[in-house]
Amino acid sequence: MHIMEGFLPVGHCIGWFAVSTPFVVAGAISVKKIIRERPETRLTLAAAGAFAFVLSALKMPSVTGSCSHPTGTGLGAIIFGPAVMAVIGAIVLLFQALLIAHGGLTTLGANVFSMAIAGPWVSWAIWRGLSKLGASIAVAVFFAAALGDLATYATTSVQLALAYPDPASGFLGAVVKFGSIYAITQIPLAIAEGFLTVVVMDALSGRAGKGDEVAFLAGKVR
């Protein structure tokens, strides 16, 4: 999902920065509020960031014969809400842009939007939706993490299609083209991320299978 340095037109770079910045600012405010109100959740917050750090460094082989990496942003979005992940995701992406030349500073706004905003919001919405429908915590967390991961890569495909529409088939043709590179490859990896997210959530809470697992991690119940 990393759009490489200098690969988006200047106007698009500015546009995505403009869209992403308010989310990151809101996220920073949200992080401050969570730490002030529930200081005991600081370690969980750190763990959610650490999870995104590990998973986004792991490039895994996929059935399409190419490699890609999960995002790890679903866990934090489920526990703390999607806003905080804008900050955590931005930190991960900045680390990679500066120290690995993966992604970029000019494309940071666009990459933050796909990995740290679109993915986490989709994760959170699916988590809330499935919970309301009565799904078990593990099932809701699995689908939230997997589909959030996939949403990040779908977003990247749309971002690239907006910047580079196909000369013959236009924007939609380009969505299909970039989608076949990013989103299809991502499907098995998204499923793996869903499984791993459930495992890490169980390990962090030590309350696997109990109904208040996520609320416990969020510091809302003791």
Binding site: K59, G65, S66
Partner: peptide, 19 residues
């Protein structure tokens, strides 16, 4: 299954260079 296992990010970059 499988293939060259190039990174999807690199393939995306190649697709832009081609387009």
């Amino acid at each position: 299954l499988g293939g060259e296992f190039k990174g999807a990010d690199d393939l995306g970059t190649d697709a832009i260079a081609q387009a």
